[in-house]
Each structure stands twice: as C-alpha cells, then as structure tokens.
C-alpha cells in the first residue's frame, strides 16, 4: 500500500493547478472548472486520511463535499448564464463593475 504522503502530493499538485487556473484564466467557465479541481484536491486529502486512520468520517465528509460542489456548480453556471445573456461572453475582464 502506498504511503499517505503520495496521495497528499497528488492532492497538492491538483490544488495548485486549480489555484493557478483561478488566478490566470479569463473564461468564467474555465475558472469554475478550476474551482472544482481545488475542491477535488481537498476530497483526495480527506479520502487519503480516512483510509490511513481507518475511520469512516472522511468518507462521509467527502459525500457532503461532492453535494456542495454540485450545488456550487449549479449556482455558478446560472450566474455565468445570466452574465452571458447581458454581455454576450463570459470573459471576466468585462465583469468589473465593482471597481471604484
């Protein structure tokens, strides 16, 4: 059996890819996908520790996390839809009305 640190390294790589995507990408859809990546990195962490400590808590928590990700995706895409309707694209450079 692989040591737990292997899983953690994979999780960290996935998380960093997610963060990099969130910080650099311009498309709203791509950003959403990167956020999903970050969530899944956390899920990998949870599962890895659950099997390492032989406890069921981590499994249960991941189920919640997946449900949360689904809800987040539903809302996030709904927002992107309405942005697309008004702006004809989802490039977030155009969405800057919070500015001074």
């Amino acid at each position: 059996m692989l040591p737990v640190s292997y899983y953690l390294i994979v999780s960290a790589i996935v998380f960093c890819i997610g963060i990099y995507g969130v910080m650099t990408l311009r498309s709203g859809i791509m950003i959403m996908m990167c956020v999903e990546l970050m969530l899944n990195a956390a899920n990998i962490n949870l599962i890895a520790f659950a099997s390492h400590f032989n406890q069921v808590n981590g499994h249960v928590f991941v189920l919640f996390s997946i449900a949360l990700a689904a809800a987040e995706a539903a809302i996030g895409f709904a927002i992107l839809m309405s942005i697309f309707r008004s702006k004809e694209n989802v490039n977030i450079d155009n969405i800057n009305i919070l500015r001074w």
Binding site: M23, T24, I31, I92, D93, I95, I97, L98, R99, W100
Partner: peptide
C-alpha cells in the same frame, strides 16, 4: 487608495491566496 479596488475578482482571489 481606491485604485487598489480593480473590480477584477481574480485580483482579489490572488491577494487572498
């Protein structure tokens, strides 16, 4: 100081990270 508020969410996310 208000120039800091770019309105681009990604900048805020970067700052948070």
């Amino acid at each position: 100081l208000k120039k800091i508020q770019t309105g681009v969410v990604q900048n805020y996310a970067t700052a948070t990270v």
